Amino acid sequence: MPAVDALVCFALYAANRTTAQAYRVLLEPWNLTYPQYIALVTLWGDGEQTVSSLGEALQLDSGTLSPMLARMEANGLLTRTRDRDDERVVTVTLTDRGDELRAELAHVPRCIAAGAGLTDADSARELIDALHQLTEAMRDLRDHPDTVLAAAGIPRPRA
């Protein structure tokens, strides 16, 4: 067994890459990427919103999000409209085609859940909750490394 197989970080990395590859296979017939798919899911669930609120929801910066939304707009999935009072604010709205994809892609979450061995809604919720808890813990480590190092009894290295 390679040494990296014993690392939590590598297990997460490998799971993330393989999950992204599974989504790629499922979304390929619609010429969609995973980030485009999650943008659609967000718009289906939350309705039209500003580019900045969509970026926050998807944890994507504007340098990544804007070109992606431009491609989706060119493909007829959504429209972007500048606010008349403040042109810095851009609202993203699904087109009819973008709305239609909701039914066409309804199988994707079920396929991912089945592929992950999640047999029911409770097992999916448990995994999602554990991943959210992990994300929050890693965010806390990122934002407050001294606190985590001190709790672990590890002195902060000097730069």
Rank of each mutant, 00 (worst) to 15 (best):
102 R>C: 13
158 R>F: 10
47 G>L: 05
18 T>E: 14
128 I>A: 11
3 A>G: 03
143 D>C: 08
29 P>M: 10
82 R>H: 05
47 G>C: 00
32 L>D: 02
75 N>G: 09
146 D>W: 00
118 L>D: 03
73 E>V: 01
74 A>D: 14
152 A>I: 09
119 T>K: 12
24 R>E: 15
142 R>V: 10
55 G>H: 04
143 D>F: 03
17 R>C: 14
75 N>V: 05
102 R>L: 08
103 A>G: 07
144 H>R: 10
6 A>V: 08
156 R>C: 01
79 T>W: 14
64 T>M: 01
106 A>D: 13
31 N>F: 12
145 P>W: 13
18 T>Y: 09
121 A>K: 13
6 A>S: 10
94 L>M: 05
148 V>T: 13
76 G>E: 05
21 Q>R: 15
42 T>C: 07
74 A>H: 13
136 E>L: 13
116 A>E: 06
31 N>G: 12
111 C>T: 09
82 R>F: 01
95 T>C: 04
65 L>N: 06
13 Y>I: 05
134 L>R: 14
37 Y>C: 00
40 L>A: 02
72 M>H: 08
115 G>W: 11
61 D>P: 05
96 D>N: 02
67 P>Y: 02
111 C>F: 07
130 A>G: 08
39 A>R: 04
57 A>C: 09
37 Y>A: 03
141 L>D: 03
45 G>L: 04
107 H>P: 06
104 E>A: 10
95 T>F: 10
35 P>S: 02
158 R>A: 12
29 P>Q: 08
142 R>K: 13
74 A>V: 03
120 D>N: 13
80 R>T: 06
33 T>L: 12
130 A>E: 11
94 L>A: 01
80 R>A: 00
116 A>N: 05
10 F>Q: 14
128 I>S: 03
133 Q>P: 01
140 D>F: 15
143 D>S: 11
128 I>F: 15
107 H>G: 05
147 T>W: 07
45 G>W: 00
66 S>T: 09
103 A>R: 13
127 L>N: 06
154 I>L: 15
151 A>G: 02
98 G>V: 09
44 W>C: 02
126 E>P: 04
